[in-house]
């Protein structure tokens, strides 16, 4: 199991057990054994995955290869080996770029331009004629909530406003796939919440989002599935729940508060799914469980049948941050 988490897909094309496919929908983005190196430095190493609808989080430490992967997808880099395809065409072709909107992490604008002029210029670069560029600019600015502030010069914008303008230029050509690199960096909590709501509204319209972030806590609520990267490799892929279920070496920690904690402990201590039980005080129980997807239904049945009153049921290491730590520990073995 450990090996299956840390191993990238083999050259025979067999997927890692952690890679899950979205049913029925053809992948919008496909990476097939992609490697990219810069001289002696390898940026991405034999990465294979598919992106479908919804929000996918791209998580990893600095230098893990996230930006390289994003730029391969956005068609700004060509892979040294393997193939990157977007909607069935090679990612670095102009046709593929029609489907991708890229919001980079860099904050580089022509500072003397207004936000509106900048987005309109990006629309013209994309191939819209003057009238269409104007219409699309207004639509994109409305979507990111910058219509009333778009005539100010970019140099006078706050960090959050600059981020919105970057998003607007990524949305101006109505792409199917939106790639966002570190969108929440430097944004205040209110701004983050607004951006996350914007991302969700985009996916509700059928867009596919790939969001790269260091802020793991927010990936818990934002991302439908995640890709963990480390040292250029894809370490794990799937929903957080799926990945957590597979981390057998790291049983899930569950905290339970019940008035009959000791009774409850005595009933479940012999279960094969329960690796450890610790009673703290009179009403608190700490469990370590394997295969949570099997444990919880069985636990629920027990609670209902025996009439236990559960005041609190909390998993303490099922967050993106905790899973990321476990995955990185496993990856260190290889």
């Amino acid at each position: 199991m450990i090996q299956s988490i840390a191993k990238s897909p083999t050259s025979s094309g067999v997927d890692s057990p952690l890679v899950t496919r979205h049913s029925s929908l053809a992948p919008l983005v496909e990476f097939r054994e992609v490697s990219k190196w810069y001289g002696p430095v390898i940026g991405v190493n034999e990465v294979s995955f598919e992106l479908g609808a919804g929000i996918t989080g791209l998580l990893g430490a600095n230098g893990a290869g996230k930006t390289t992967l994003i730029k391969l997808l956005a068609g700004q880099l060509r892979p040294s080996l393997g193939e990157v395809s977007v909607c069935g065409v090679r990612a670095w072709s102009a046709a593929a770029k029609s489907h991708v909107g890229y919001c980079p992490d860099v904050d580089a604008f022509y500072e003397e331009m207004s936000g509106r002029a900048f987005v309109r210029t990006m629309a013209r670069l994309h191939g819209f004629d003057r009238r269409a560029a104007q219409e699309r600019t207004e639509a994109a600015l409305a979507e990111v909530g910058m219509l009333d502030r778009a005539d100010r010069r970019l140099r006078g914008y706050s960090k959050g406003m600059r981020q919105r303008i970057k998003l607007a230029q990524a949305l101006v050509h109505d792409p199917d796939i939106i790639v966002v690199d570190e969108p929440l960096n430097g944004i205040d909590p209110v701004g983050r919440r607004e951006l996350m709501e914007l991302f969700r509204s985009l996916t509700s319209r059928g867009k596919t989002l790939l969001v790269s972030s260091h802020i793991l806590d927010e990936m818990d609520t934002l991302a439908d599935r995640v890709l963990f990267m480390g040292r250029g490799r894809l370490l794990a892929s799937g929903t957080l729940k799926e990945i957590r279920d597979m981390l057998d070496n790291y049983p899930l920690h569950v905290r339970i508060n019940s008035d009959r904690a000791r009774d409850l402990a005595s009933r479940i201590v012999h279960w094969e799914l329960v690796r450890g039980v610790e009673v703290r005080g009179t009403d608190e129980l700490w469990l370590q469980v394997h295969r949570p997807s099997e444990f919880f239904p069985r636990f629920t049945n027990l609670v209902v049948d025996e009439g236990f009153e559960i005041e609190r049921l909390q998993t303490t290491d099922a967050s993106a941050g905790a899973i990321f730590d476990y995955v990185m520990k496993e990856a260190a073995h290889f």
């Binding site: 730029k71 956005a74 068609g75 700004q76 670095w92 072709s93 102009a94 770029k97 029609s98 991708v100 909107g101 890229y102 980079p104 860099v106 580089a108 604008f109 022509y110 990006m122 670069l125 994309h126 191939g127 230029q169 990524a170 050509h173």
Partner: peptide
Amino acid sequence: GSDYHQGGLSFYLSRRME
């Protein structure tokens, strides 16, 4: 120079152009 120094090249190359 600013396209290279400040990373603005990403904006250009993300458009429908090569």
